[in-house]
């Protein structure tokens, strides 16, 4: 049973090895508008463009560990995403409405502080509530969308695989994750970690953000294309100073979970707003929005 426990830890800790992210410069110039839907949450529109993306997950080729492939992804449509992480005050409104689980004691409730120590389920509950409340469709970003919006704040975690010496990769990953920016885990006011070229605030600060991407093991062919994949959606990708994989019901990853890794400081999130379909736009106009 202990072995099972350790295996589970190991699984949850499988390093996301994402790669060098040449971010297309044309991504900048994002249109920014805030609080248009009355939620008080500013939305940034990241212009359509490309991203060079190191795929999340674990990879094998011919029955051996393989490096994560680098893919070029085109976003045909602009991406509407929250400028800030969801604030603890906004999250608290969902708690007060009976739709979200209470924040842990110790989380400062303020309109300019992120909701932290939230699980993936908490983030989804909030997205569902906000969508019902506004008639818009909010959801967590995929890992690809997060990387696209993060631009230069997305760090490529690609690492070579040496099948003759697996320790090299572990040590390289450990050293990279240990290069944590100083400042500690205390939550700061919005804007403390700066704004990226797309107008998003506080990316890769000391709050890691949930994505909807499941932990997936890919089997690659010789050309590096995925020929089969097996997902474990009990573990989701979180993004921040480094990519990490966290079990979906965990609210506080700081205690570790990894026997020998460097865990995220805080878990928070921001949401993507789906473009409105004409049906929902009409429904909203007629004040018959869902929920």
């Amino acid at each position: 049973m202990l072995i099972a426990f350790k295996l589970k830890l190991a699984l949850a800790c499988v390093a996301g090895l994402a790669g060098p992210l040449a971010v297309a410069p044309l991504l900048s110039d994002a249109g920014i508008r805030g609080g248009a839907d009355g939620t008080g949450q500013a939305i940034v529109e990241v212009r359509a463009g490309n991203v060079s993306y190191r795929v999340a997950g674990d990879f094998t080729r011919n029955g051996r560990q393989a490096a994560a492939p680098l893919r070029h992804i085109t976003f045909q449509e602009p991406l509407a995403i929250m400028k800030h992480q969801v604030s603890s005050a906004d999250y608290q409104a969902c708690v007060d409405a009976g739709a979200c689980r209470s924040l842990d004691r110790g989380v400062v409730i303020a309109p300019d502080r992120p909701a932290v120590q939230v699980s993936w389920h908490d983030a989804n509950a909030y997205a569902g509530w906000l969508s019902r409340k506004t008639g818009e469709h909010y959801r967590l970003p995929t890992d690809e969308e997060w990387a696209f919006a993060a631009g230069s704040r997305f760090s490529d975690d690609g690492l070579p695989v040496d099948n003759d010496d697996p320790s090299k990769r572990w040590i390289a990953r450990y050293e990279r994750e240990s290069e944590r920016k100083p400042g500690g885990g205390d939550v700061r006011a919005f804007g403390s970690f700066g704004i990226n070229e797309n107008g998003l605030a506080d990316l890769a600060g000391n709050v890691w953000e949930w994505t909807s991407t499941c932990f997936t093991r890919h089997r690659l062919d010789d050309a590096g294309e995925t020929v089969s994949a097996r997902s474990n959606c009990g573990v989701r990708v979180v993004q921040g100073q480094h990519r990490s994989y966290v079990t979906d019901f965990i609210r506080d990853a700081r205690a570790g979970g990894c026997a020998a890794g460097v865990p995220p400081d805080n878990l928070g999130f921001r949401l993507v707003r789906e473009p409105q379909s004409w049906v929902s736009a009409v429904a909203k106009a007629l004040h018959i929005a869902r929920g």
Partner: peptide
């Protein structure tokens, strides 16, 4: 894990396949 009593050793050197090897990766 929960209360803090963990230290890490970072050990450099050459991997010994005889002591341990992943015979077949997860699939």
């Amino acid at each position: 894990v929960e209360l803090g009593a963990t230290a890490h050793f970072k050990v450099e050197g050459k991997w010994n396949d005889d002591l341990m090897t992943q015979v077949k990766a997860p699939s």
